[in-house]
Design a binder for these strands. Structure first.
Length: 614
RNA sequence: GGGGCCGUAGCUCAAUUGGUUAGAGUACCGGACUGUCGAUCCGGUGGUUGCGGGUUCGAGCCCCGUCGGCCUCGCCA
């Protein structure tokens, strides 16, 4: 532990002491000196954070990744040195020599870990002047953060900010803990190719043209899925890898085109084994990173239950606000829209927003309605505001049979001031719309403390989702997922009811990982391919190697992949994945610092046999 | 591919809703100051209002197009 940087719960970034990191250029770091060091002759290197100039003396905060130390230059430092000190500006890189001194009585700075001391400067060397930076790397809380485009263009300055350094440190910590943990459990770290064949996981591939094989392309891996299964067949019964994955799909706040997974696979296991291993990891990281005790095993919920109670397969379980199904009551409620919906076999479901009746105006509700129409294709949004006398106000209330309305409202068990929101639509639309509303209102009404963490498993996913456009079945996870043994017969009779041995790790309503037990029998694998409309020649062509391998002694196996970027985001309490990645890409998958992707020479294209069509 | 928000000084934002000289804070430059720590005080430089069209007597503001950033649906574990 000693000499190791480590984020501790409740401890500021600067409060750990990394031990001496002396070099020929420096004797200490800027976060290291304490009152015990008074009298020492030291040399610090770092960036100028602020320069407070009093004419007679200069107070300079010197910053490196370990912290800040105040260095003072006075006439005793010598006229030349003092003049040089006066000329220092933000982000200049300097070396400062001096004597550690206790600060003057009452002049301690409680905000700094080094705040009891200061360095009385005797020497100063400017190692490198900085241009005036476009935004401040220092000045925590001083100024509004610069726009993200500017931060991304000057990423080196953004990464210099203590907040960013803290996140990067946390990320390194999480990855290291993962590596230690799996190493202790005898996992073997094996690297798999980046230049590979397209894996059939549904997303668009990033392609790399082959010069040698003109007209042929490698695909960057969407995940190392097939390789790790091959490793199981090869007898490496516990594989782990920190793997970069690539998916050429449109981006979101929590999605990048290239991202990092902690990928693992185990042989001779059932789902409980894999989940148990991850339970241990969650508990360890929560403890080491946040000082949080997590009760094990983590709670589990089936996919069906999650959809019914929360409308989503990754519900945020930090708060309640569960969905309420009133379809039965709607059948004879008097309100035509509801009745027709119910009669058509669709659903009338809703949720209760505590205090929403007072919080949201009629106009706010109209905006919510527009929103769920636009984003989720909902036909509308019905609302009831619970009045102080307990009655339910709504423009549509007059259409209801009073008794039925009372019963309907009672289903939500509301208090005065609450707001009931109902969606009458298909199962899918009601899920999406109410999930969206729940997520948004939960945050807006502050129904949970954003600092709390909730970990859970969602299990028993459907094997297949019906693709209405193509009128065929599509793999919900990927085509190598094993069905539950008790559901295997359903493959032939009713694939839609067949449940997979699949499990997703959910943290605070985010999917933080997902895995399955795989098919290890080539016949069963072929049966699943058939269902997915992948005929034998196609299957042979695309993953004949796997089908072959399955015939040479494939052990039962399964695994999981964890989204490391998302883990960092969630453990750091951030809401943006770009802040968890040193060099992220914009929403259009561009790197603003390097300007990737860029044009290439005509010569390069010619070598590859590629012509650009405009 | 669809919907939305945004783009004004290096940076963060304002501009009485179409009105004549586009402001503030900060940064930067100069000056003052021996205990600050978001130092303070005085003075100063700094603008093709993303770009291109259009409407108008007049456009930062309205319209069309375009580029870029963000959020989101579709898509994607």
């Amino acid at each position: 532990m000693e000499g190791r940087a480590r984020v501790r719960p409740g401890a500021g970034f600067y409060s750990f002491c990394p031990g001496r990191i002396a070099t020929l250029l420096r004797t200490h770091t800027c976060g290291e000196l304490r009152s015990e060091d008074v009298g020492r002759e030291v040399t610090l290197c770092g960036w100028v954070d602020t320069n407070r100039d009093f004419g007679g003396s200069q107070f300079i905060d010197l910053r490196d990744r370990y912290g800040k130390t105040q260095v003072v230059f006075t006439p005793q430092s010598g006229a030349e040195t003092q003049a040089l000190a006066r000329s220092l500006r933000s982000e200049d890189v300097v070396s400062m020599t001096g004597t550690v001194a206790r600060r003057l009585e009452g002049k301690d700075n409680a905000k700094l870990a080094t705040g009891q001391i200061e360095v009385r400067g005797t020497g100063l060397k400017v190692l490198n002047k900085s241009l005036t930076p476009p935004f401040q790397s220092s000045a925590v809380g001083t100024q509004e953060l610069a726009g993200e485009d500017i931060r991304l263009t000057h990423r080196y300055l953004d990464l210099r900010r203590p907040e960013m350094q803290q996140t990067m440190l946390l990320r390194g910590q999480i990855v290291k803990t993962m590596r230690d943990y799996f190493d202790e459990l005898d996992f073997i770290d094996v690297e798999t190719p980046v230049l590979g064949r397209s894996t059939p996981e549904g997303a668009r591939d990033y392609l790399v043209p082959s010069r040698v094989h003109r007209g042929a392309f490698y695909a960057l891996p969407q995940s190392p899925q097939l390789y790790k299964q091959i490793l199981m067949i090869a007898g490496y019964d516990r594989y782990v890898q920190v793997a970069r994955c690539f998916r050429d799909e449109d981006l979101r706040a929590d999605r990048q085109p290239e991202f990092t997974q902690l990928d693992l696979e185990m042989s001779f296991v059932e789902a409980d084994d894999v989940m148990g291993v991850i339970d241990g990891l969650v508990s360890r990281i929560a403890r080491e990173v946040l000082g949080l005790k997590v009760n094990l095993p983590l709670p589990r919920m089936t996919y069906d239950e999650a959809m019914r109670r929360f409308g989503h397969d990754a519900p945020d379980l930090r708060f309640g606000m569960e969905l309420v199904d009133v379809t039965d009551l709607a059948k004879e409620c008097g309100f035509r829209v509801f009745q027709e919906t119910a009669a058509a076999g669709k659903f009338v479901r809703g949720l209760k927003a505590p205090g929403g009746g007072t919080r949201y105006s009629r106009k706010d509700i109209d905006l919510l309605t527009d929103w769920i129409r636009q984003d989720f294709g909902a036909s509308g949004l019905a609302f009831f505001r619970i009045e102080p006398d307990g009655s339910a106000f709504s423009p549509i209330a007059k259409n209801f049979q009073p008794a039925v309305l009372a019963e309907l409202v009672a289903h939500f068990d509301p208090q005065p001031g609450d707001l009931l929101l109902l969606v009458a639509d298909t199962w899918e639309v009601s899920c999406k719309a109410l999930y969206g509303l729940r997520k948004r209102l939960g945050a807006e009404l502050k129904l949970y403390d954003p600092k709390t963490m909730h970990f859970s498993w969602i299990v028993e996913f459907p094997m297949f989702a019906h693709d209405a456009e193509e009128n065929c079945w599509a793999a919900m996870h990927h085509p190598f997922t094993a069905p539950r043994p008790q559901d295997q017969e359903l493959l032939a009779t009713d694939p839609g009811k067949c449940r997979a041995i699949a499990y997703d790790l959910v943290i605070n309503g985010s999917e933080a990982g997902g895995g399955t037990i795989r098919i290890h029998d080539s016949k069963l694998q072929q049966q699943v391919f058939d269902l997915l409309g992948i005929d034998e020649p196609t299957a042979r062509e695309r993953f004949g190697f796997l089908l072959d391998a399955l015939k040479y002694g494939a052990p039962p196996h399964g695994g999981i992949a964890l989204g490391i970027d998302r883990w960092v985001m969630l453990f750091a309490g951030l809401d943006n994945i770009r802040d968890c990645i040193a060099f992220p890409k914009t929403q259009k998958a561009a790197d603003m610092m390097t300007d990737a992707p860029g044009q290439v020479d005509a010569k390069q294209l010619k070598e590859l046999g590629i012509q650009i069509i405009r």
